[in-house]
Amino acid sequence: MSRMRMMPAINSALIEEMDRDKKVILYGEDAGISLLGQTTGLQERFGKDRVRDTPICENIMTGMAVGAAAAGYRPICHLLYGNFIYTGFDSIANQAAKLKYMTGGQITLPIVYMAVIGGGRSAAAQHSDTPYPALMNLGGIKVVVPSSARSAKGLLKAAIRDDNPVFYLTAGSSGKPEEVPDDDFILPIGKAEILREGNDITIVAIGPMVLKAVEASLVLEKIGIHAEVIDLLSLLPIDEETIINSVKKTGRLVIVDEARDVCSAASHIAAIAADKAFNSLKSPVKRVTVDNLAIPYSPILEDQVIPNVENIVNTVRELI
């Protein structure tokens, strides 16, 4: 085990996987110098061929991942910020997500598209989006949202070995450092983790919201409410079983999601609960999400918009 933060954990997963498999290549804007820290030192270690600085051209970057994957490589397309997924969306939506199906399964497309999502850094609306709702509606891809250094490492190694396009979306930073396994540590895609057990209410949290949900559960415990906190980790495929079993036990559900509310992961999870755990529900399913707004710049405004611990605690208290 090593104590590390999220970006170094991502870095170690990349090094291990690129060491293991020569077909793993990585490219992106400033991949060599590494703006955010995920790719620090990779170019020195693996060379400019396998770790490639691209021009600023998301349209071709997302598409060339498909061509390179079809031709036998396992490309990692580093898109920096989640908002730039929109810039390269054509090839994501029309090629990567569909080509396997459209060709009757002739190919597999082992691609990782990675980006940093969410706000909290005074980066304003064009660098703070949480774009997975649009991705979840594409089919043909997977979406994982690690919440910590440990899950960041385990899910990245799984994503690189997966034979599908996987969107690997993390916060830019993850709060406190934590112990991360040094060995070949893999978390299965599509499996949620129960971080805290409880019988009174289920809180399902996604990616950057997981820490806040855990903090909220600690506050709630002091007033005698025992929340079960689920770290979803994967959005597509989604671990329905863990969610449903928990809701059947607690009878109540709150979902915490940093995406805008309309057609979000949160609304999808609410629909799953309504469909498959309806008879267990003792109260309405509530969603703690972002309104139909852009993420603002000024920290006090940003705090108004992005779900916080207080929002989660208050929402839970409305139900119990």
Binding site: D49, N59, I60, A70, G72, Y73, D90, Q95
Partner: peptide, 30 residues
Amino acid sequence: ADFKKGIMGANGVVGGGMGLAIGAALAASM
């Protein structure tokens, strides 16, 4: 499309084949 024969396919998106061809060319160069 017939990937076994190097045919990455006709494409319904005008310009949609550019990225695929670049990716295959990148693979070829490597």
